[in-house]
């Protein structure tokens, strides 16, 4: 049956459907057996007999329910006849159902199965951030080694002229820090970068309230054309005319 049924676990046979035609003389004895061996023991797991003795030949189409017998019990099947007569156009069909919860050797994917277990993919274990450092990260203080922290503190305490150096040191430390993937640290870096934008303080400039009226006024009420513009227009017109004439003359010569 391995080449008849799908090679998956959780399979059970619900019905056997067989069809065949019998040709015989009415008075002749003729018996047809449809059967399957028991793959897990002796004897038969399925047997059905059609006795055509004393009957005219015909075509039979029969469905026999077997109430969900596990597929592993079903051995090789056959249609065997005895007596005087012949069988033609025979077919044997096994109706089966597959229970996805009863599969073995593969993970259960059906969430409705009672034996379903959530399987997580292999996720690499990230280094744990010590809880004592988290408040430091929130307060814009990057995670540094203890020796570096002491050195950094000394530089930050210096009154003047050393702040730029300290900032570069902070950036360097942040770049080298293994906790760069941490969300908290990323935010800290982003805020730090925001502080280094030139003239960033202008974004927080406040204007006094009130009405700001237009202060530009036309003195004599006239707006004459500029002489420079007039000359420029003439020059462009002259140039355009020269180019048109040049094209006209060249075409004329070509002809």
């Amino acid at each position: 049956m391995a080449n008849v049924l799908p090679n998956v676990s959780g399979l059970s046979i619900n019905a056997v459907i067989y069809r065949y035609s019998v040709e015989k003389v009415v008075s002749d004895p003729f018996i047809v057996d449809i059967q399957n061996k028991n793959a897990r023991g002796d004897g038969l797991i399925f047997h059905s007999r059609d006795d055509w003795s004393g009957l005219p030949g015909n075509r039979i189409n029969r469905v026999i329910g077997v109430n969900g017998i596990d597929a592993s019990y079903w051995g090789d099947g056959e249609i065997r006849s005895s007596g005087i007569g012949s069988i033609s156009e025979a077919s044997l069909v096994y109706a089966y159902t597959r229970d996805s919860c009863a599969e073995t050797g593969v993970p259960i994917v059906d969430t409705k199965c009672p034996n379903y277990k959530i399987t997580l993919p292999d996720i690499p274990v990230l280094p744990v951030i010590p809880e004592v450092l988290i408040p430091d990260l929130i307060s814009d203080k990057p995670y540094v080694k203890e020796s570096e922290e002491v050195e950094l503190s000394k530089e930050l305490i210096k009154p003047s002229g050393k702040k730029g150096r300290a900032d570069s040191k902070i950036s360097k430390i942040i770049t080298q820090n293994s906790l760069i993937n941490s969300d908290v640290l990323q935010k800290a870096v982003a805020f730090e970068a925001l502080n280094n934008i030139p003239k960033f303080e202008l974004y927080s400039f406040t204007m006094n309230g009130g009405v700001y009226r237009d202060t530009v006024k036309l003195q004599d009420g006239k707006l004459p054309d500029g002489r420079r513009g007039l000359v420029n227009t003439w020059a462009q017109e002259e140039l355009h005319q020269k180019m048109v004439d040049l094209q006209y003359n060249s075409n004329k010569k070509g002809n």
Binding site: V22, V26, V32, D50, D51, W52, L55, P56, G57, N58, R59, I60, N61, R62, V63
Partner: peptide, 15 residues
């Protein structure tokens, strides 16, 4: 005529 049966005994319907 009887063309197809689900039981061999039904073949007697013809006769």
């Amino acid at each position: 005529s009887v063309s197809e049966v689900s039981d061999a005994g039904m073949s007697a319907y013809t006769t």
